[in-house]
Structure formats: C-alpha cells, structure tokens
Write a protein that binds this DNA or RNA. Structure first.
Length: 596
RNA sequence: GCUGGAAUAGCGCAGUCGGUAGCGCAACUGAUUCGUAAUCAGUAGGUCGAGGGUUCGAGUCCCUUUUCCAGCUCCA
C-alpha cells in the first residue's frame, strides 16, 4: 500500500478499532455515530452510559491493543438499504445516516472480526495485524453535537493521536508541548503584555509593555493606510438604539450587543425605554452617519473612513479564548464608499494591503468566500450582484478553486471574503475580512450626485486586515514566541550601566534614543549587571546596551544581541542609532547582527 | 450556551487518611560595586476563587456560584 494512502486508511481503520474497543468496554447499548480521520489522528463520536475521564484512557488504549493483536480479518460487504437498516436497527445515528442516503447509493459495511460492523464507505486495511506497529494514544474526550447542530444530541467525542510509528507520535507530542509553551495566554502575563480580571470577562487589560506593542501595531497600520489615502475617524462608543434599529443590528445582532437600558416614567431601567443605548459591536453605522452629513459628489469618491474605536460584542461564555476571542476589542476597520465601477479596483487595492501587511509578519493566509445567509437583509438581486463581483475578483487573484466557499456564512448585510491565519496549535482564525455592502447605505438613505446629475446610492466596502487587533496580536505572540521583530518590540533597547557611577552616561544614551522615538528602558539600580541583563533577557528586549568606563569615555555602546551570546563591543552610539532607525523603517523581522 | 476539567503567595508548584499552609523564583532589607543569563545573608508575603453545608475540626468531603482551559456550536 502506498504510504500516503496508508496514512489515511490506517487512521480511519483505527477509528473502527476505537469504536469496537469502546463497545466491548461499555456494552452493546453504546450508540456510535461517525469516526473520521483528522490531521493528527482520528476521532469517534459516542453516546455512552457515563462521562469518560482521563482515567479511562489507559483501559481504552489497552483494549484497542488487545483487539489489534487478535489479527482479525476485515471484510467489506455491499448490502441493500433494508439489510443495512436491519443490521443497525439498534443504532439511531447509523439508522438516520442510512435513511438519508440517496436510493441509488451503494451501501457498504465493514466487519472487523465477526462481532463488530460499521457503516462505512472505506477503504480499510485487510487485517488488523497491519496496525500492529502503528502508534496511537487517546488525546482527549469532549462534547460534540450530532451533525454539528447544537439543538441535537450531544455526544462524547474521543480523539486519538495516530502515527505510523512511535517515533513520529513522540515527535508530534513534543511539537504540541512546545506549542503549549508559546501559548499567548502564557506568554502574555509572563512578558507583562496583558491580563484579565473576572469583573470584565473577555476584556483585556493592556499592561504598559503590551500597550507599547499594541501601539506599534496600530502605528504601522496607520502608516500603511495613510499611503493608501485612508482618513481616520472616531465616533461614539454607545448610541441610542434608534441608530441600531436603522442599521438592522437591533433586528439581526441584538443578542451580541451590550445594552444599556434607559429609564421609563417610573424611573425604572428598562430596555423598552426610548433612552435605551447600546455599545457598538461594529463601526459601520457611525461611519454611515459621517458620510451622510452633507451632500456628496461622485468626485469625492472613494471616501475611506478608517477607525480603531473600541467595540463590544457579547459572546456566549464558553467561546471566549484568551485574546483570540474577546468581548471588547478594536479592529483596524475601514468603510470605503465607492461607485459601483470602483469596486473591483478598490478590492484589488485592499488585497494588496493585506499581502503587504501579512508579509511583514511572515504570515501566510487562506481566503474564504462567504455567501448569503438565511438571515439576510435586502433584495436577493443585489446580493447576487455583490456575490458575482467578489467571485470574479477571487477567481482572478487566487484562481478558481484557490479559495474555499462557505455557503450561507455571509454577514446579514452582504457577502464577504475572509482571510484565515493559523495559531501555534494549527487552529485557524479569521482575521482579515472584506465585505461588500449594498444594504446599509440604503438603510441610512445615503446618496451621491453622479456625473449625469442623478442621485445614486454608494456601495460600501467594509474591511479589516488584522481583523481584531487583539486576535491578531494573540496569533503574532505565538508565531514569534514573544520574540518580536525590532519595530514592534515593547522596548527595543535596554540599557545596563555596569555600576551606578555609569548612570549619568546611561541617561544621556537613553535621552538620545528617546528623542529619536526608539523605545528604551534602563535599570539604574545598584543590582549587579548580571541581574540586570537577566531581567532584560527575560523580557526578550532585542538589544541590551552594556555601559561602563570604556563606553562612557569613548561615547560608545557595547551591544548584547537577543538570541545569541554574541557581543559587539565599542560601537559608536551614532552607528547603533542608524541601525535602529533602519530596522524601524524597514519593519525587518530579523535583527541586524553586525554594525558594518 | 453544551460536555469535561482546573483554581493554593506576584509567578511556577507541593500539601498523604479531614488535624489548623510549605518550596523555588520574584519582592523587600543589609552586605558585595561587579565587563555580559541565577553573589551571600536575612525579612515579609495566604479569608487556599466566592458563598453555603457536613464535622469537635475542611485547602482536602458535599452543594451552589464565578472565572479560566480543551473541545463542540457561534464568531473578528
């Protein structure tokens, strides 16, 4: 058997062994659903008499090994629908699957030994002995809904790691462990970037160091957008619900909004009050207000309103996750008002910005196209037009089939292109988003005067490249393991005077650097220099300057570079400053390790 | 929201059978004034997430609750 094929087949076959083992342990009343292979193994969904815990894993693993040792033959049998229904008459999930199959579909079942049968398309191994050398381990157990629907049965999903041999399994486990080490939830507090408190669930507190990182990212975003002729605005964080009723958020998004009830005649707070306000979950409505404040001409378009205001979105508790999923965040948001024939060029420009920004971080992304949801607003015809435009652009840029299509996943006001990037554990997160909107401008009665003097409705493009800055930072922290490129490091340079008598010179150096907007910190305490260096190394500051007699005398600095024990001694301060300025300007990922 | 798990000093952890809370690092004080990642000595720090219960006695057992984590669902 080919190696590639084997990888899929043995993982899927192992899922059958897992099901057989669980049934042998927990009895015939176990309901088993489906068990596909996944990136690092496979899983199987069950309804079991009791909740599994970690303590049950060894028993399952042992039973699986025992079953494999039986060297049972696997046989495939093609059966009629009636026969299949008979075989699985006590299995509700299998019965449902069989009933849903088209009439003319071939139904195959696989027997592992005589006593276990599973509905399956295959292919599978011929005999369990082929699994003898395969390495596997129960990874975890968790809840999962039947057919991914939260209104249907919840089952227990048993995950398995599975690899061709022990060595590969061990390597994978090591990789997972390393990924956990660089979890942003761990690195964040360690590097003093952010924290959380239970009184503000899912709302990050940015600590001094983290806020410098955040600001560096925002500054970079502002610089790029300025070059692309964006104008930054800011608008109220809470608005009366009149605004949200016009925008459609009150009808389509209210469950995700933080509401501030107004008072009624009896001085009681109630959501029904005309004074009820809500915190903005999105910037769009207020951007519409700024556009609509005066008559507009086609000559003004495109108008690009960028915005970094704080947004609030109420989430169900279980879906919060460090910085990756929060309830308060900022987006590198923009609403661009265009005429219909500007759409294509504008989206091209947005995608070029995305390419430029992601490249700066060394990140690759994957595009997804989301179409009209059930809960949509507006005319179907407008939707069809919008979807056709986006599809054309995507086909041109990524090629047909070069992106994923998510039917029905669009926003309620328009279809969208999402840009996905991965965290350290390989989980994908939506960051960038480009949404085409023919709807909101109508709700807000926005118009511009066209060349022929007629009144037209502008099209709005919503877009964000980082997506939420919080989420993007979470991913970036993990990608860089907290070892940030010079330009975004909280502190770029640390200064260590060898003895307190060198503090005066150190302060001069610090003032020079600060005047040039290089972020610098210094330790003037009487701790010994080793302690000071250690402290700054732990913060992962890119360059540590050690200053003593020689340096003070010659106006130089001695540089200790991050990530190596290499020292560059007696560098003229001006030369070091040039190096810093160059790194800042070029947004280099790597540090410069020599002054020549 | 659902299923399962976790919460002990600023951080990382230990705490046995229910018997009254400990270690390392960090902090602080003193000594050392040092040339590139752990100098020495001492001091202080805890309503054991919160509330209730069982018990002579609870970090430990039970119930409720909050927050966090993994996964599901939803999402930027």
């Amino acid at each position: 058997m080919e190696k590639e094929q084997f990888l899929e087949v043995y993982r899927h076959s192992l899922a059958h062994i897992l099901a057989k083992a669980v049934i042998e342990i927990y009895g015939k009343e176990v309901q088993y659903a489906i068990g596909p292979q996944i990136a690092d193994g496979c899983y199987y969904d069950f309804v079991l008499p009791a909740a599994l815990t970690e303590g049950d894993f060894p028993a399952i693993e042992n039973k699986m090994r025992e079953i494999i040792k039986r060297r049972e033959t696997w046989t495939m049998e093609e059966v009629s629908k009636e026969k299949a229904l008979e075989i699985f008459k006590d299995q509700k999930f299998k019965t449902e699957l069989i009933c849903d199959l088209p009439e003319d579909e071939k139904i195959t079942v696989y027997y592992t030994g005589d006593d276990f049968v599973d509905l399956c398309r295959g292919p599978h191994i011929d005999n369990s002995q082929l699994l003898m050398n395969v390495a596997f381990q129960v990874k975890s157990v968790s809840g999962a809904y039947w057919r991914g629907d939260e209104h249907r049965d919840q089952m227990q999903r048993v995950y398995l790691y599975a690899f061709p041999d022990q060595k590969q399994l061990k390597e994978h486990l090591k990789m997972i462990k390393e990924a956990m080490e660089r979890d942003h939830k761990k690195l964040g507090p360690q590097l003093e970037l952010f924290m959380f408190n239970e009184t503000a669930q899912g709302m990050p507190y940015w600590l001094p160091r983290g806020w410098k990182l955040y600001q560096a990212l925002m500054q970079y975003s502002r610089d790029v957008q300025d070059l692309h002729e964006y104008q930054e605005i800011s608008a109220p964080v809470i608005n009366n619900n009149k605004l949200w009723i016009i925008s459609g958020h009150w009808a389509h998004y209210v469950n995700n909004m933080f509401i501030i009830p107004g008072k009624d005649e009896d001085e009681k707070y109630t959501v029904e009050s005309v004074d009820t306000m809500a915190a903005k979950p999105m910037n769009c409505p207020n951007a519409m207000m700024e556009f609509g404040r005066k008559p507009r001409s086609y000559k003004e378009l495109p108008i690009r309103y960028s915005e970094y205001d704080v947004l609030h979105r109420k989430e169900k508790t279980g879906q919060l996750n460090g910085l990756l999923r929060v309830q308060e965040f900022r987006q590198d948001d923009d609403h661009t008002f265009v005429t219909e024939d500007m759409i294509e060029a504008e989206i091209d420009d947005i995608l070029s910005i995305a390419d430029e920004i992601y490249k700066t971080f060394g990140i690759t992304y994957r595009a997804e196209f989301s179409t009209r949801p059930e809960d949509f607003m507006g005319d179907i015809e407008l939707w069809n037009d919008a979807e056709a435009v986006l599809k054309k652009i995507l086909d041109k840029k990524y090629g047909e089939g070069g992106y994923e299509i998510n039917e029905g996943d669009g926003a309620f006001y328009g279809p969208k292109i999402d840009l996905q990037i991965k965290d350290a554990l390989g989980r994908e997160w939506q960051c960038g988003t480009i949404q085409l909107d023919f709807q909101l401008p109508r709700n807000f009665d926005l118009k511009y005067t066209a060349q022929d003097g007629s009144e037209k409705v502008p099209v709005v493009i919503h877009r964000a490249i980082f997506g939420s800055i919080e989420r993007f930072l979470g991913i970036i922290i993990e990608n860089f393991k907290g070892v940030f490129p010079f330009w975004m490091s909280p502190y770029q340079v640390a200064v260590v005077p060898i003895r307190t008598e060198h503090n005066d010179y150190a302060k001069k150096v610090v003032q020079r650097l600060k005047a040039l907007r290089i972020r610098v910190e210094a330790d003037y305490s009487d701790n010994n220099m080793k302690q000071k260096i250690k402290k700054f190394k732990n913060y992962k500051d890119p360059y540590i300057l050690v200053l003593g007699d020689k340096e003070a005398e010659n106006g130089t600095v001695s540089i200790n570079m991050r990530g190596s024990n290499k020292q560059i001694n007696d560098v003229p301060l001006d030369k070091f400053i040039d190096m810093c300025m160059k790194l800042n300007m070029e947004h280099s990922i790597e540090l410069i390790d020599s002054v020549e």
